[in-house]
Design a protein around this nucleic acid. Structure first.
Lengths: 231, 231
DNA sequence: AGATAGTGTGTGAAAATTACACCATTAAAT
DNA sequence: ATTTAATGGTGTAATTTTCACACACTATCT
């Protein structure tokens, strides 16, 4: 009964596409590799899965080790399994994405020697990346663009308190198109999950904008099941 | 320079959720296992990936070996990587789905001894399945339900020539809700990718319905980029 | 006091969605 | 020949959603 499974002489890894938003620009997290192959190249944070950890756990651990970032909600979006992805052998990779607030405080500090450094890079004008990481990035970017239409993922990229203009410019950055201000506000507010605060922006040299919060509880109530579908 | 990659002492596999539509019912393809563990249990068609084949190729091969079916367009939809999914060791599984016309002609005939037989089973009242296959099925089913809203996947389940009533009842089976006949027809026809044929249904004991075809070329023209998104 | 930069607001037209019911056609049964 | 059972096929009005569009207000800086 205790049959031993055949083993698979290959490597199983994780790559992470981590989106952030800063200064009106959408960015992703890259590392500078400190190991062959592709030493000195820029790459997505990624590494090998251990045998006794789930892939979700591995994704968290690996991102932490390479960038110092923790406790993000990462979601897998695709698995890359072509035969010749890696110059040294068969590697199968599950790609994850997350969206987070870029936060000056949280320093990006790799805790392994495998990455020399980690930093944010605008998604426009990405340089060539190691392996097939450009393809992985593109796949991930299309996924979140689509997901933006039916999931409240944008709020994970903004500070807790944000203005409607910030929210709009984030949508514009992800969708890569201009939106109409009045229609955007009307629609966002009509969802009913934005909570208007009694606070205003500070330190700006123009009329201060109202601040809003994303109200998870209301969101959950409103969209208990799904958003779309007609009769 | 030629660093050997560490090997991963684990198994990498594929499971397939194959949807078909027959007699007004949505069905999936199951096999009866002929090997431990879970010998004699019902399961999704699935097996181990070889080292020199891509995961997409593996999915095709495995489905063929277990069921005799070939040349479907399978798409991966999720990777299952919990540590204790398999009683005998670490197994990571990429799950694929496909939608196909069930066709009496094409016999389901496993070509390996690993499956005793393969057969279609209605998605309602699925029995307990081996491993975590029930969870895999559920995940896949939600995916296609969502994808139905923005991709023309339903046509893959119908014969080449179909009636609008058949199309509607398929939508109803997937979405698990009744739709309004007039609105459904109006909407479907308004897309402009259904080609009305000069033919009618035969062999029915009531008024014969017009037959339609899905016109891929027109579909591609109309939806070159994407369907949704507002301004 | 004036320049600057971004905030905040409403309406009307067009399009899409929804609700809703009856006659037409065919084959089989009588 | 007539009836029955089953499904095919069609239109309209009310409602909701989407879209296009422009200007006055406020805070700060000089």
């Amino acid at each position: 009964m205790e049959v031993k499974l055949p083993t698979f002489d290959s490597v199983f890894s994780i790559d992470c596409v981590i989106f952030g938003f800063e200064a009106g620009e959408l960015k992703i997290l890259l590392i500078e590799r400190n190991e062959e192959p592709f030493k000195d190249w820029l790459a997505l944070p990624g590494y090998i899965v251990e045998q006794d950890e789930s892939i979700d756990d591995a994704a968290e651990r690996i991102l932490y080790e390479l960038t110092g970032l923790r406790d993000l909600h990462m979601q897998q979006f695709h698995t890359f399994g072509e035969v010749n992805r890696h110059p040294q052998g068969r590697v199968i990779t599950v790609a994850y994405y997350a969206l987070i607030r870029i936060n000056g405080q949280k320093e990006l500090r790799p805790v392994t020697q495998f990455a020399r450094k980690a930093f944010w890079h605008p998604v426009n004008e990405l340089p060539k990346l190691a392996f097939d990481h450009s393809e992985i990035f593109n796949t991930g970017f299309s996924k979140i663009r689509r997901r933006l239409n039916y999931q409240p993922i944008a709020f994970e990229l903004l500070p807790e308190k944000f203005t409607l203009t910030q929210l709009q410019s984030l949508y514009e950055a992800i969708l890569n198109k201009k939106l109409d201000k009045r229609n955007f506000r009307k629609k966002m507010l009509s969802f009913g999950f934005l909570k208007e605060l009694d606070e205003k922006q500070k330190g700006v040299s123009y009329r201060a904008a109202k601040l809003y919060k994303f109200d998870k509880r209301k969101y959950a109530k409103i969209f208990h099941n799904d958003m779309s579908i007609e009769k």
